[in-house]
Computed example of a mutant assay.
Amino acid sequence: MKAFQTFEGLVCPLDRTNVDTDQIIPKQFLKRVERKGFGACLFYNWRFDEKGNKKTDFILNQPDYAGASILVARDNFGCGSSREHAPWALQDYGFRVIIAPSFADIFFNNCQKNGVLAIRLDERKVETLIGCASQGAFHLTVNLAEQTLTGNEFKEKFDIDPYQKELLIKGLDEIAITLNYDNDITAYEQRHAM
């Protein structure tokens, strides 16, 4: 997992509530288990018509948001099924940070475990970010160590679980942490071999 410390990116405003995981990554794309290649399928039914042509009215298809890496949305982002493919698709597309007033719990945890920083922010602050990003190129700097978001006149602190913060800063998932104890595990197993 890529370490996350300070990150600066273009903000894309997704002015929608209750964005469910089937909209993030539709079910027909869930046949693979590798984590790569899902970015092309992100928000597929919103981005493309029945013939596979881009819908010009969808925010991610607008030139101003090409290369966006911070997504700001409304309440209850990531609701629906618990598919881990949803954060994989967001990350593969290029998003490192998702900001919303609230997230579905399983989605929120899946983001943190896969290196996507999900930030819960007060609804009024999200409204401000959506407003700023809707007017054109708006960049935010995310400082995970200081837990701050800054951009133009905007400056706000955010909360994060200390354990999740440490994992993200070090670029570790739970498997990598376990592997740090490989020598201890091997020694234990050798002592208790039958």
Rank of each mutant, 00 (worst) to 15 (best):
K36F: 03
Y65N: 11
R96C: 02
D49T: 06
P87E: 12
F154I: 03
F158Y: 08
L121Y: 07
H139Y: 15
P101G: 11
A89F: 13
F58G: 10
A68F: 01
P162R: 10
R16S: 01
E174C: 11
N180E: 15
Q135N: 11
C79H: 08
A104I: 09
F95N: 09
L179N: 13
R83Q: 03
E8M: 09
V97K: 00
S134F: 01
I99H: 05
L30M: 13
R96F: 02
M194E: 02
S82C: 06
F158I: 06
G115T: 12
D75P: 00
N143R: 03
Q62M: 14
I98W: 01
G67V: 04
T6Y: 00
E156K: 08
F29T: 13
V97H: 01
I177V: 15
A137W: 00
D20R: 08
F158C: 05
A193W: 01
V97E: 03
Y65I: 09
N109H: 05
I130P: 08
I119M: 12
V19D: 06
L167A: 14
L179K: 13
G80C: 05
D22H: 09
F43P: 10
G52K: 10
R83I: 05
L10S: 05
T17K: 12
C41S: 14
A104R: 04
E84T: 05
E166G: 06
F77C: 06
T178S: 08
M1T: 12
V142K: 08
T128L: 06
F29R: 11
C41A: 14
D184Q: 15
E166I: 04
Y65P: 09
I99Q: 02
P26Q: 11
F4Q: 05
Y44F: 14
I106M: 11
R32M: 06
A104P: 03
T150V: 12
G80F: 07
N45P: 02
N180D: 14
L42F: 02
Q5M: 06
G94P: 12
D15A: 13
G151Y: 06
T56G: 01
R32D: 13
R35D: 07
K170V: 01
H139G: 04
Q5P: 00
Y65Q: 05
K54P: 13
A104W: 05
P26T: 13
M1S: 14
E34P: 01
I99V: 14
A133M: 07
N45A: 09
Q147G: 04
K155Y: 07
G115F: 06
V116A: 06
P101C: 10
K170Q: 15
C79S: 14
Q28W: 00
A3P: 15
N53Q: 15
N45G: 14
D20V: 10
D184V: 06
E123Q: 15
E123D: 13
Q135S: 09
D75N: 15
D159I: 04
I185M: 08
T128W: 10
D159Q: 06
T186K: 15
F107V: 05
R124P: 00
G37M: 08
H139A: 12
N45W: 03
R96A: 07
F77W: 12
P101W: 07
T17H: 07
A176S: 14
D105Q: 08
C111L: 09
L167W: 14
L129Q: 04
